[in-house]
């Protein structure tokens, strides 16, 4: 994870996920359960999706200007639909 895109782009770690959040808040705000969980899920997804050494994925979230509870509900509905489709 990184909150400093330029620094990370210079260092080029094997897999990087950038989020435009303040320094010291890479997973969001205190007690913002939905926000923290979404960032954690996206960070883990990058472990599988990044295939090129040194790639940097930029997350789209705009700090406080997102409805993370809605985003998470939509994501869970999507997962359920996928599971039902697989059955």
């Amino acid at each position: 994870m990184t909150v400093s895109r330029d620094v990370t782009a210079g260092i080029k770690p094997p897999r990087a996920v950038y989020v435009r959040f303040p320094f010291g808040f890479a997973f969001g705000e205190p007690f913002a359960y939905d926000q923290q969980l979404i960032i954690a899920e996206d960070a883990l997804a990058a472990l599988e999706s990044i295939k090129e050494p040194g790639a940097l994925i930029e997350l789209p979230y705009r700090w406080k200007r997102e409805n993370y509870a809605t985003l998470r509900r939509e994501r869970e509905r999507g997962m359920e639909a996928q599971q039902e489709g697989a059955h």
Binding site: P22, F23, G24, F25, A26, F27, G28, E29, P30, F31, Y33, Q36, L37, I39, A40, E41, L44
Partner: peptide, 24 residues
């Protein structure tokens, strides 16, 4: 060298998301 008073001191998960990883 960073503001943990308003963040990590209140909820460590903002820099150390162990509770979220446990749930996952």
């Amino acid at each position: 060298h960073y503001n943990h008073k308003d963040g990590a001191d209140k909820d460590i998960n903002v820099v150390f998301p162990l509770d979220r990883l446990r749930e996952l």
